[in-house]
């Protein structure tokens, strides 16, 4: 009897094991940038989907039940962290009822843990400072060096969960970095044109971009993160633009440009709608490399 049970168990294991081995990792990411890098590293060994779109403000995504369906069978949930998704992620993770991707689960991947974070406040903070992120500025993917860190993190996570394909993940991650290195060489002239040039940014989302390319943010359209500009603040921005000779207002496609138009009309400053994420301008920036290249070249052209 015991022998029969052993035979049955062995047969079941043989039938089941190849399915596990051949199954693709199911990866869901909060943003299109993480999605694109995950796809680059995972290749055909994973299936990937994303919650937010590149032309959508990632702070304010609706926790739609249809996202729950994506998450309930996910092996990996990769998110930006630093409270970027605080307004909707808890609902989705709770609704998904998937222990693999809950905090502490093997597939819970807070990407910010490998990022040298900017703007991390020291000491006490409160809401009078606007939508300040207690853990620091979460818009880190706009620095290619962080793109590399994200790719390495995905390689490590995918290898941990699917060791049989570790060589593929390793090769893909190396290929991603090699491609990024090559792309960087291509925009060196743009970097030189941008460095030190005064610009105005709408939101703090361009801090990492500035850290990378050396542009000098002389004013923010938002008086505090997430707070819409008041008339008196705009007047001050206009004075700053006139004083510094700032060349461009950089803003995301999901902000209302009427207020920026007002500043532009008063000062002649250009308005530059830059996609902050992959897919931010449909068709124009389909992947991470084209996103960085597009933003860099557009900005360089504006400030030259």
């Amino acid at each position: 009897m015991i022998r029969r049970i052993h035979i049955l168990l062995l047969a079941a294991a043989l039938v089941y094991a190849p399915r596990v081995a051949s199954a693709q990792l199911r990866v869901v990411t909060s943003t299109t940038d993480l999605y694109d890098i995950a796809k680059a590293v995972g290749g055909n060994k994973i299936t990937a989907t994303h919650i937010g779109e590149g032309y959508q403000d990632p702070h304010f995504i609706e926790a739609k039940p249809s996202f729950v369906l994506q998450l309930r069978s996910a092996d990996v949930w990769a998110f930006v962290g630093l409270d970027l998704e605080i307004g909707w992620m808890p609902l989705l993770l709770e609704g998904a009822r998937n222990t693999r991707i809950r905090q502490g689960g093997s597939g819970y991947l807070d990407v910010s843990t490998v990022i040298p974070v900017l703007d991390r406040p020291q000491g006490n903070i409160d809401r009078s400072m606007g939508d300040v992120h207690a853990g620091g500025n979460p818009h880190y993917w706009l620095d290619p060096q962080n793109g590399r860190r994200i790719a390495r993190l995905f390689k490590t996570k995918f290898t941990q969960l699917d060791p049989t394909n570790s060589s593929a993940y390793d090769a893909n991650a190396r290929a991603f970095e090699a491609r990024l290195n090559a792309a960087e060489k291509g925009w060196q002239a743009d970097l030189a044109a941008i460095k030190g040039k005064p610009v105005v940014a709408w939101h703090t989302s361009w801090r990492y971009f500035a850290e990378y390319n050396g542009m000098n943010i002389v004013a923010f359209m938002e008086p505090k993160p997430g707070v819409p500009p008041s008339p008196s603040h705009l007047y001050g921005v206009i004075q700053t633009v006139k004083r510094t000779g700032a060349k461009a207002i950089i803003m995301e496609p999901f902000y209302d440009r009427k207020v920026a138009d007002l500043v532009s009309k008063q000062t002649g400053i250009k308005i530059l709608i830059l996609p902050p994420s992959v897919g931010g301008i449909p068709g124009a920036v389909p992947d991470y490399f084209s996103l960085m290249r597009y933003d860099m070249s557009q900005l360089a052209n504006a400030v030259r």
């Binding site: 004013a219 923010f220 008086p223 001050g236 921005v237 004075q239 700053t240």
Partner: peptide, 10 residues
């Protein structure tokens, strides 16, 4: 005061 407010935000 307005200029200071902008400087403060930066």
């Amino acid at each position: 005061s307005i200029a200071k407010a902008v400087r403060d935000s930066v």
